[in-house]
Write a protein that binds this DNA or RNA. Sequence first.
DNA 1: TGTATCGGATACATGAGTGTATCGTAGAGC
DNA 2: GCTCTACGATACACTCATGTATCCGATACA
Lengths: 219, 219
Amino acid sequence: MTDTVNPPSNEPTSRRREATRRKLLDAAAQVFAEEGLDAASVEAICERAGFTRGAFYSNFETKDELFLELAGRVARERVDAVRERVAILEREGGLHDVATDALAIVEQVLDVSGDDRLAILLMSEIRIHALRDSRLGAAYLAQDAEMRASVAQIITDIALAKTLRFRMPADDVARLMLTVWESESVRATMAGLDYEAVCRRTSEELARVAQLVIEQPQP
Amino acid sequence: MTDTVNPPSNEPTSRRREATRRKLLDAAAQVFAEEGLDAASVEAICERAGFTRGAFYSNFETKDELFLELAGRVARERVDAVRERVAILEREGGLHDVATDALAIVEQVLDVSGDDRLAILLMSEIRIHALRDSRLGAAYLAQDAEMRASVAQIITDIALAKTLRFRMPADDVARLMLTVWESESVRATMAGLDYEAVCRRTSEELARVAQLVIEQPQP
DNA sequence: TGTATCGGATACATGAGTGTATCGTAGAGC
DNA sequence: GCTCTACGATACACTCATGTATCCGATACA
């Protein structure tokens, strides 16, 4: 999906240049999260990155281009993080040592998105622009699908290891989990909770959904 | 909740003035949905409303003030729409004539939010600013809670009429329904579906949740 | 050590949006 | 029908962001 957003640029870039780009992207992530794409000035981004606008225009065409690239990076990072966790779980040989509770699933999913407040804001910012820009929209949906697939994988693994049964296909369970996770963390953030509390509340809500989704053995 | 956003203004306003304000608000709703709060210029709003900026500044202090008022109006309208439906359902004396399917619940909820693409965009726009502005955030959450309460009411009514049992409290069911509704309609809109298709897809997803939430009679 | 090149800083021109001060007019009240 | 005023239009001054053109310094290489 990311290639939808970032056509692989083959220009040989120096190490220094690469570092500058990274710093600018990092700074932009913060500023975009805090103020939003439109309200964020190029100036503000450069200031935070420790450069002047000259550096910016030497590295990016426009603010939009940078945003696009940032969105791609964020998507890649999230998906990679989830994938890595899946790999770890599988390498651990079938999750023998996870907690015995349905909550284990929840925590697995939650851990994956080890986000902070800013990350939640940034994702929301990307989301609304994805709603208006079809190119970004496609990328966003693709990332969403990949995440879902990976989470579904985890869920399947855990279910196998613990011989659980679900009331719907793993993919639907994953969708539901991710949906609830996103909207609940947004609501909790909105309520002004600190990040720890956000996690706690989201976790509780996810636990409820897990309870719902897992087929309870009928005595 | 709306009074959090709109302290009741007691100034006697002329009918003409009221109409102007309404036109400006309507226009702003469109422009905000299309471009977002920050990208929307006061000029663009006025142009769409058929006024010049003079009219704007005669009626509102700033663009932000207008946005706040608009957010309040939208919240009020949504809640009222749901409430009205609840009232109708209750007046109809216990839903004797609804379809016999679990989907009935879904449709009840869905019908309520007779939104179009622009409304979805506008709600998303309000949402992200609610994430950054605590005042807006409180209002947003309050509206969310009211919606949930009303939907829970509907759900309870339907459940009674059809002697259904749920796997979780009605309030949690309502939360889940609304969450899925919002995020699914956003995803569908993002995919570029027309409004009818958005509704269809959202409806399907909600049906799945309903299936999940309703306690199936064990044969 | 000299020089060429790349990357970033600085300075400046331009455009857009904002808010205010002032003006003109429609319509209510008498 | 006249007047007065509230409402909205117009014009203008100001700010601020953008993007470009130019300049400067460091690093690589001869």
